[in-house]
Design a protein around this nucleic acid. Structure first.
Lengths: 332, 332
DNA sequence: TTGAAAGCGTTACCAG
DNA sequence: CTGGTAACGCTTTCAA
C-alpha cells in the first residue's frame, strides 16, 4: 500500500480510502488507485486487519476425528457455509481423548478464532474447559454429542425417533422378532436409540426380551459377534437393528456366514451414509443422518451468535430412513 | 501486555523479555511476570506476531473433497505433523472443480498461509495459477495428483508399480483377459496406473486390446457403466482392475447385476481403504494407499521447504496389495 | 478531497 | 538488567 501511494504520488490514507470506495474521494482518484492495485497484485494484509479489529474471520472446529464420514461430512457443511460468509475454518481432532480436546481448545483460543464449533470426545465427562469459554465470551456451538445446553447452542439428531421409526418399519414389512445391537450403555446415543427401539415394541404391545438386546462396543467386531450371539439362540430374531454403520456391516457378514438370506431370513437396518449403504449386497436400509445439513445448521448458529448475542438454541436435524433392500420381507 | 507492565510497574519491553526467558533478565523479575501473566490469563496475540514476522504458522491444504476417506486420511497425517510443529492448517475443498480450485488458492494466499499443500482437481488442465506461486515465493507441495514437478515437491504413490503388481496378481491367480477402468486421461495417475497395467500385459506377452480399457471419469457411476460396457462385449474380460474405490464399487454392482460371480466369472481388484474393502461381499482385493503416511510426508516436505530453500523433491510412498477374496480364481 | 498522525500488540534495537 | 522507540500494514480521526 505504501508502494502504491508512492507510485501514485498520493498519501497512504488516500489509497486506503480509494480502495474501499470512501464516498469522499474523487472518482478519478479512486479508479487510478484501483487500477494500479490490480496491476501490482495488491492484497490487503489480514493480520493488520485482525490486529486492528480483532476479528480474524476464523472459526475453529473440534471433532473426534476427521476420517469418519459422519464428521467429515459435517465439517464439509460447516466450512461451505463459513466460506460463503468469508470465514475460514481451522479443524482439530481429539481422537476421542479428553486431554487432546483440552489441548485443541487451548490452541484455538490462542489462535484467536472468533468462535468454536465442537463435538465432545467419548472420554470427556468433565466440561469445565468448555464452561470457561462462556466467561471469556467466546461463542461455542456443540453438535451431536453435546453438553451445557443452557449455556451453548447445539445441533443434534432425533435419536429416539429415528430408532423408533426404523423399528416400526421392520414391523410393518413383515418382521416379528427384532434384535438390537448397540454400544456401551453410558453413551447417550446408545440409550436414546435403544429407547426408541423399545418404545416401538411397547407401542405394538410386543413383549420386550432382554436376550434380543446386545450392547458391548461400537465397532465391526462387536457387530459381528452381536449378530452371531443373537442368531444362535434357540428362538433367534428375524430382524436386527444395528446402531451404527460398522456394527451393521459386521452383522451383515455374520448373517451371511450363517447361510441366512437378507431380508428373507433376517432383515437388517443400520445407520450409515448414502454411499456405503449402496455398496453392499443387498443394499442396506439405513437411518441416514443429514450430516451436511447438520454442519450448515451449526455454522449458521455460530454466525448468528457472532453477529448479535443470541440465546442458546437447540436445532434438531431429523435423520431419514432410507429404505433399500435389506429390510423389506413382504414386497408388495 | 500493557496492563501487565502497568500492574507490575515495569516497562512493556521488560515484560516481553521476561515472557520469553531472555537471558538478560533477573530471574526474580522473570518469575513475577510469568506468574501474573498466568493469573491474568494472558495470551500473546498471534496477529501482532504475524504482522511483525509475516509468518502466521499456518499451512493451507487444497483437496478435491474432505469426505473421501483417501483425502481425509491424508489431511489427518498432514495436520498431525503440522500441529506437532505448532502449525495450524486451513482446509479448502475444490469439489473437483477448476474454478473452485483457483478460488481456494486465491483465498489461501489472501489469508497469507506460509505454504500450500494441494491435490489437483479432476477438471484442472491449466496449471498457471499454481505456476504463479513460484514467483510469489510461496512454497507448494503436491500430493497424489501432481504437476509442474520440476518446480514443486510432491508426494506420490507408486502408481505404475501398484497397477502392475495388481495385474500380475490377477494373471497369477487364473485370470486371462483383464479389463481396466480408469478416469480422464489427462490425469497423471490415470496414465501411470494404466501404464502399469499395460506393462504387466506386455511382460506376459498378452496382446493389448483397446476395447478392454474404459476411461471416463472417476466416480461410482462411471465404474458401473464401465463394467457394463466391458462385460457386454462379444468377448468380455474375466477380470477387471478398477482404478479407485468408487469405480470398484460401481463395477462390483454391475457384475452382480449381470448375474456373474466374483471372482469365478469376473475377478475384481480396486483401490480402497482397509475398512470398506472388508464390508463388501466378497471382500475386495485392493491396492491400499498408506494415506496417513503420505500426509505426514507431504507436511514434512513443506516444513523443510519452509525452513530453508530446498530443491523440489519427490517422495514415493508405496501402496500395498491387500489380497482378499474378489480376485483369486484358482484357490490352491 | 486529501494528508498527517495515532494506534492495534508485539519484538528488537539502542541507550542507559 | 531495564526502558524507550521504531517498525509491521492498515484504518481512522483530525486538520488542512
Amino acid at each position: 500500500m505504501k508502494d502504491l501511494a508512492a507510485e501514485l504520488g498520493v498519501s497512504i490514507s488516500t489509497v486506503s480510502r480509494a480502495l474501499k470506495n470512501s464516498p469522499e474521494i474523487s472518482k478519478e482518484m479512486c479508479e487510478r488507485v484501483k487500477t494500479l492495485a490490480k496491476k501490482r497484485n495488491y492484497r490487503p494484509n489480514p493480520f493488520a486487519m485482525s490486529l486492528l479489529k480483532n476479528s480474524p474471520r476464523l472459526i475453529g472446529i473440534i471433532v473426534p476425528d476427521i476420517v469418519t464420514h459422519f464428521y467429515s461430512s459435517i465439517i464439509s457443511g460447516i466450512s461451505d457455509v463459513a466460506r460463503k460468509n468469508s470465514y475460514s475454518v481451522i479443524i482439530t481432532s481429539t481422537y476421542e481423548q479428553y486431554e487432546l480436546e483440552k489441548q485443541s481448545l487451548e490452541d484455538l483460543i490462542n489462535i484467536r478464532v472468533e468462535g468454536i464449533i465442537a463435538c465432545l470426545s467419548q472420554e470427556t465427562t468433565d466440561y469445565s474447559h468448555f464452561d470457561h469459554l462462556a466467561d471469556q465470551n467466546i461463542p461455542l456451538v456443540f453438535f451431536d454429542r453435546v453438553c451445557l445446553t443452557e449455556k451453548f447452542s447445539s445441533v443434534i439428531t432425533d435419536n429416539v425417533e429415528s430408532a423408533q421409526k426404523a423399528t416400526e418399519h421392520l414391523l410393518a414389512t413383515g418382521s416379528k422378532r427384532i434384535g438390537f445391537i448397540g454400544g456401551s450403555n453410558h453413551l447417550e446415543i446408545v440409550q436414546q436409540r435403544k429407547h426408541g427401539y423399545l418404545q416401538a415394541l411397547r407401542d405394538h404391545k410386543i413383549p420386550i426380551e432382554k436376550e434380543l438386546v446386545f450392547c458391548k462396543k461400537i465397532d465391526y467386531k462387536q457387530g459381528y459377534e452381536g449378530a452371531c450371539t443373537l442368531l444362535s439362540q434357540a428362538n433367534p430374531p428375524d430382524a436386527i437393528l444395528a446402531m451404527t454403520d460398522s456394527i451393521a456391516f459386521g452383522a451383515m457378514r455374520a448373517i451371511k456366514e450363517k447361510g441366512l438370506r437378507i431380508p428373507e431370513d433376517v432383515a437388517l437396518i443400520g445407520y450409515t451414509d448414502e454411499a456405503h449403504s449402496n455398496y453392499v449386497d443387498p443394499p442396506l436400509t439405513a437411518v441416514t443422518h443429514q450430516t451436511y445439513k447438520m454442519g450448515e445448521a451449526a455454522c449458521n448458529l455460530m454466525l448468528r451468535r457472532l453477529k448479535g448475542t443470541e440465546k442458546p438454541k437447540q436445532i434438531v436435524v431429523p435423520a431419514l430412513l432410507s429404505i433399500r433392500e435389506s429390510s423389506v420381507k413382504n414386497r408388495v
